[in-house]
């Protein structure tokens, strides 16, 4: 456990980015979702860590008798007890989320570059990308943005030398060995290979992110027509 300033603590539950770390992060997050302590404000999961943000004033008021203890020490003690009780390293079945993607054309202007860079055809780029076994390691960087692991090296392509100023929401891209989907319009240097009509950031929903860490993703190729249909359905 490590402090992240005077109101947060980072809990490390693994050393490497792998399925075990991801599972441990998920178990810890599910526990925090039950809102076990009123002094916890929120948490941020990552690949091997969960950061817990807490209210030092609330801890101090509640535990006046423990005046020798700093709120940080109190928080660490309470969280350490939880880590002992929780059965980390247990496995559960992941949820599979299907994301329809219209590859190439106007919606994926860089697919040809990705193909020629790797010495394959655009059809092969699409096949390899849509047949991958993908795991969402964490959500971050932008609202609902998934850090996805599992893309084949056969379609890995470096970022563009000069970034685009605007990448539309829903764009599916490749940057180095990573693939990702942009939930909101942003600038960026990714190679754009397609676009999905479904929304990853849902600001009006109680859970505003379509994906969560631990989800498996299946990219399904769709036609331009189907893309438009789905887009109109919203």
């Amino acid at each position: 456990m490590h402090p992240l300033g005077d109101n947060a603590v980072i809990i490390e539950v693994g050393e490497e980015m792998n399925i075990e770390s991801q599972k441990n992060v998920e178990i810890l997050c599910s526990f925090f979702d039950t809102q076990p302590f009123d002094w916890i404000i929120e948490y941020i999961p990552a690949f091997t860590t969960v950061a817990v943000f807490y209210d030092p004033v609330k801890i101090q008021k509640k535990h006046k008798s423990d005046f020798l203890k700093f709120p940080y020490d109190y928080a660490c003690d309470a969280l350490n007890k939880i880590l002992v009780e929780l059965q980390l390293n247990e496995t559960t079945e992941p949820r599979i989320v299907e994301i329809p993607v219209c590859y190439g054309g106007e919606l994926g202007p860089d697919i040809e570059h990705v193909a020629s860079y790797n010495g394959i055809t655009t059809k092969e780029v699409m096949d390899i990308h849509s047949k991958g076994d993908y795991l969402v390691h964490m959500i971050g960087f932008a609202p609902g943005f998934p850090y996805i692991g599992g893309m084949s090296d056969k379609i890995a392509t470096p970022r563009r030398t000069s970034p685009r100023l605007k990448i539309p929401a829903g764009t599916v891209g490749i940057a180095g060995k990573q693939t990702g989907v942009y939930p909101i319009e942003t600038p960026g240097g990714w190679q754009l290979i397609g676009r999905t009509p479904i929304k990853l950031f849902l600001p009006n929903e109680a859970t505003p992110s379509l994906l969560k860490a631990g989800d498996k993703i299946k990219f399904t190729p769709i036609s331009n027509e189907r893309y438009k249909e789905l887009e109109e359905e919203g």
Partner: peptide
């Protein structure tokens, strides 16, 4: 290093050596 949470006032240093202080509109990680 692997991405992880940042906080209001986190000072991070990219490879160019110039520190960045993260403020109100900081990214989450």
């Amino acid at each position: 290093m692997l991405s992880e949470a940042v906080n209001f006032g986190t000072i991070q240093v990219p490879s160019d050596g110039n520190p960045i202080v993260l403020l109100a509109d900081r990214q989450t990680t």
